[in-house]
Structure formats: C-alpha cells, structure tokens
Design a protein around this nucleic acid. Structure first.
Length: 575
DNA sequence: GCCGTTTTCGGCCCGACTGTTTTCAGTCG
C-alpha cells in the first residue's frame, strides 16, 4: 500500500473523529500523522510491518497498530464503524467552505440529512434555517458552493517560476520607489516551494500610503481587490493574487517570519516557544514571566529570542528543522555560487535553440568551470535524434574548442534514452568516448511500477551511465510522475555508484525535495542540472539548487560543487 | 493521540473574521 493511500485513510479517520466530536487534539494528531506518512520517503506500510513506523514523527504505538491493520486488511475498524454512524456524504459536508464539523454534525442530528443533494434541497426550501446558528447567509453560502460544480472550488496554483517572475518585478519596482525602505517576498515563494497559491510581499516605508499606491498602479495589476493605507490586495493580469503589506520597521522580522511560514513550521515553533513560556505571533514575542512583548526588526532576532539559530526559509516545513536547530545540527545548505558546472543541456544538434558556442560562452559568463553538452541520443522520439556519426563529429568539435579555451572545460556528453529493456541507445564503444552520460526515460511512461523500476535499475547497472536524468518524469501541474519505486532506485543508485539528478527545470524539479533528501541520506551523489534548451536558460539552475536546499543538501552531497577533476574520480567508471 | 532541557501526565499556536449573536462559537489560514 502506498504512503498516499495510508495518509488518505488517516485523513478520513480524522474527519470522522471530528464529526464524532472527539477532542480536537486527537483529530490534529491524525492529521499530523497523515502528513508525516505522506512526507515519508520510505514505505510506511513496510515500516509498520517491521514495527518501526514509530520512528516517524507523530506516529505512536496506537497509530502504528492502526496502519498495520489497514495494510493487512484494507480497513481500519474504527473507520468502518464511524462510516456507519455517519453515513452517505456527511464527511464531504466539511469540504464546503464555512461549513465545519460542528455545523455538519448539527445539520445531521437535527434534519437527518446525509447527501449533498439533500443539503441543497434543505437550503433551497429554507429548512436549514431551523438549525440553531444557521441563517440566510449560511444558506446562500452552501448553495453557491454546491452550484460551483458540487465539488468545492480547487484553488488554482501557479508554478514558482511564474510567481517569482511577478514577485521579482514588483520588488524591483518598489525598491526603487522613493517612499520605500525594505521590500521582500514572503510566503511560500520565499521557501521556494514547487507551486504557490498566491504571493505575499511585505515592506517598510517612510510613506506607506505612497508606496501602497505605487503598488496598486503597477503595470501588471489587473484588478485591485482591496486597498488601504498600509497595504493592498491585487490580482495580476494573469490571475495571480498578490498581497502587499507595509509594516513598522521594528516589527518587520515578526511579520516576515509569520508570513513566510510554513503554517506547520510556525505551529511547531510556537508550541516549542510555549514550553519556554513565550508566545509568538506576527505582532511579537510575549514573555509569560513579566508580560513583556518584544518586537523584532529581523527574523534572526525572532529565532534568537526563542534561543534558536536562524533557520533558512527552505527548511521551514516542520520536517525536523526545529529539532536540528535545538541540537545545533542544522545543515550548511548548498548555495548557487558553489555550483561549478552544469552537466545536462541541449543544443541545436537535437532540440535546443542555441549553438555549442553559445552554450559554452553562457557557461563561462556564469563563472562555471565546466559544462557538459548532452544532446538527445539516436532514438529520441521527436525527429531530433543524433545518429552515432553526428555524435562523433560533435565529440571532435568539443575537443577542438577545448584547445582554444583557458580555465574552462567543455565536456562531450549525451542524454541517452533508457529503452524498454533498460539498455541505452549507443554502443558502449561510443559511450566510452564521452565524458559524461546521463540516461533518462522519454518513452512508454505508462508501464507498471514493477517494469519501470526494473527498466531504470537495469540502466543503472551500465558502467558508463554516470547519472539518471529527471528520475520520476513528473511535470509539475501537468503530468504525474511515472509509476516507479523511488526507494528501489535510490538503493540501486547507492549500490552501483550512479548519481541521481535534480533536474532544475522549474516544471520538473525532479528528483523532488523529499526524494533528494532520502537519496543523499542513502549516500547517493546528487547532480543538479539546468537541462537548458537555450543559452539563456542556464540560470534555471537556481530552481534545482532550491530543491536541493529544501532537501537539506550540503555542498558535499552535490557532485557538481566539485571541480571536474574531482568529479571525474567520483564517476562509477573511475571506481 | 503524541510528546518531553520545567512534565511519562498534562499539556497541546495564534489571531482574524463571520454570522448570528446580545457576548461568542465556529471556521479559517
């Protein structure tokens, strides 16, 4: 059973317990456990079978036992029982915004309503109003929500690259405004999550009104939703909601910390603070001892008041960063300027838009020491294949260019296709001529998990395959990863010395943060690549570095923080 | 139901908003 299925079962049980009126802490415990299971890079079913699931945060003896029962029998008895007690679509009532468990329960108790259709009918006939606490607004709200397609509206999410493009434009414009002092991006964009629901920007200013007005008058503003003396909410022309707030300078740290989140991190942080007699909010840190309230100009001050070192935004997901901070064991996260080369990109030889020369120049301009050009191989499926002869000519070309460049090394590489049987599509003799080989899956995405895992692990056995490109094949917001057992990929990578890629394309970021963290913990070397299809796209590297940082990676975990001379020795063919 | 440099029992984040209220419970982020 997949972690996602187990997590869904725990979430459902949390909903049921909530309807049943269980103490809220038990409900919270189930939700936290569900999240823990979902986040785990290891198979929780297997952990539970080995009685090791309690190693995960928020999983105790009770939940381990329930998970084991779920895996063995397909059900948790308490859920079966509660589903009988609360029949029909009752749990789905909670999905309607504004309708919580208490209200859903009251509607059921007093009117006996169990389906969404019955709920709609009761709202239309006015029967709902007989329930204490429900008035005309509640009726309208329920009807509006049900009319929106029965399903509650799913908030549209945006790719981080789209959000940062807007965020950086806004920040750039406002920082040059004469009324501004500080302007920063906050929220999930500051944590470099894969996608964002909206964008938060906060500022300090000696003229908040003028700066707020400047914000609402930016060219990218499509609609002003709300506007006040020290902040506004707008929607951009392409539909992104942006919150802007001007705050007092001595409170900037508190607000930035609060709005950066994540919610989970802040909850854990506040709980920790409470144990020390301190109360944290966006307004300051209050001390139980004497009731004094401290505001902070910087985030560093917020963490310092709690007796903690600064925690980087990318780590603030409540994935152990608090404990690491307390123990003084926070990672020294890899930084973009530590990347010395890029090992996956394309030119006009296959499907790229820039020439070899343009790529080499762009790499040098970025301060890289080396660059591997890895055009698609002979069976690439879009008419841009590179036949062996063409690759041989390319290798000669690269060698010749290296003669003329100082302090920079161009590497002859290829992104070879992993075929259905796990073989790759050049002869070994030709592969041996290359400096760098990344192998990727580009066909038959819909194989069974078993076959896909066999296929990819077979490719890792090849002595000349240095790394696996975009190992799960996901396209964020548009394509699910292919069915593959990432745990087994990681184990095989560790066994064979094959590196795994964090592909930095902002719609890939593949491996993702959780998988990359698990791979590094297993001793697998990670290589961060831009997969640039144009010389202008080498800077996409930053999204890969961001994923690496969210994966707690230090420079030592990342192969291409090393010089080519060092990196060469780490390839399995050098072993 | 989980968890532990104040606790193995007794705690468990914080504030804003909303609608139906006459002082606040429920919901949300």
């Amino acid at each position: 059973m997949k972690n996602a299925e187990i997590a869904a079962a725990l979430d459902e049980l949390a909903d049921l317990y909530e309807l049943d009126g269980a103490v809220v802490y038990r409900v919270v415990a189930y939700r936290q456990a569900a999240r823990s299971v979902r986040d785990s890079s290891r198979s929780v079913a297997q952990l539970a079978a080995e009685k090791r699931a309690t190693e995960l945060p928020h999983i105790g003896k009770t939940l381990e036992e329930k998970i084991r029962t779920l895996v063995e029998t397909g059900e948790i008895p308490q859920a079966v029982k509660l589903r009988k007690k609360f029949p029909g679509e009752l749990v789905r009532f909670i999905e309607i915004p504004g309708l919580g468990p208490k209200t859903a329960r009251k509607i059921y108790d007093e009117l006996g309503i169990v389906t969404l259709d019955e709920l709609r009918a009761a709202a239309e006939t006015g029967a709902l109003k007989s329930v204490q606490g429900l008035g005309p607004k509640a009726e309208q709200n329920i009807l509006k929500s049900l009319d929106a397609g029965g399903e509650p509206e799913r908030a549209e999410r945006f790719l981080l690259s789209a959000v940062l493009a807007i965020g950086e434009e806004i920040v750039g414009a406002l920082r040059t405004h004469e009324a501004a002092d500080r302007v920063e991006i906050a929220g999930s964009a500051r944590r470099w999550t894969d996608t964002c629901k909206d964008l938060d920007i906060i500022a300090t200013a000696h003229d908040p009104v003028a700066l707020t007005q400047a914000f609402t008058e930016l060219e990218l503003v499509g609609e002003v939703r709300a506007s006040g003396e020290a902040g506004a909410r707008i929607v951009t022309n392409n539909g992104l909601s942006v919150d802007f707030r001007v705050v007092a300078p001595d409170q900037f740290g508190n607000v930035l910390q609060h709005l950066t989140g994540s919610k989970q991190h802040n909850m854990a942080l506040r709980e920790y603070a409470v144990r020390r007699g301190l109360h944290v909010s966006e307004y300051g840190v209050e001390d139980d001892e004497d009731g004094s309230k401290h505001t902070c100009a910087s985030e560093e001050d917020v963490y310092r008041l709690l007796g903690l070192p600064y925690i980087e935004p990318e780590l603030r997901e409540n994935r152990g960063e608090l404990k690491a901070a307390i123990d003084g064991a926070l990672p020294d996260l890899v930084r973009e300027e530590q990347i010395r080369g890029d090992l996956h990109m394309h030119t006009t030889l296959s499907d790229g838009r820039s020439t070899l020369e343009q790529m080499a120049k762009a790499g040098q301009d970025r301060g890289y020491q080396y660059l591997a050009v890895t055009d698609h191989s002979a069976t690439f499926g879009f008419g841009n294949d590179v036949q062996p002869d063409a690759l041989k000519r390319r290798i000669e070309e690269v060698r010749a260019m290296n003669e003329e460049m100082k302090g920079f090394r161009l590497l002859a590489g290829s992104e070879v296709n992993i075929q259905l049987d796990g073989s790759v599509d050049y002869d070994d003799d030709l592969l041996a001529e290359l400096d760098w080989v990344v192998a990727s899956v580009h066909t038959s995405f819909r194989m069974s998990e078993e076959r896909m895992t066999e296929r990819m692990t077979a490719a890792m056995e090849h002595p000349l395959v240095d790394a696996i490109g975009h190992p799960t094949g996901r396209k964020i917001l548009s394509r699910d990863p292919y069915h593959v057992d990432v745990e087994r990929l990681i184990a095989k990578a560790a066994e064979t010395g094959t590196m795994l890629e964090i592909n930095a394309a902002p719609d890939r970021r593949d491996l993702n943060d959780l998988h990359a963290r698990a791979a590094a913990e297993a001793g697998v070397l990670i290589v961060i690549d831009s997969d640039a299809h144009s010389h202008q796209l080498l800077p996409l590297m930053r999204y890969g570095v961001a994923t690496a940082r969210r994966a707690w990676l230090e420079p030592r975990h990342v192969a291409n923080t090393r010089t080519w001379k060092e990196l060469q020795k780490l390839r399995k063919r050098a072993r």
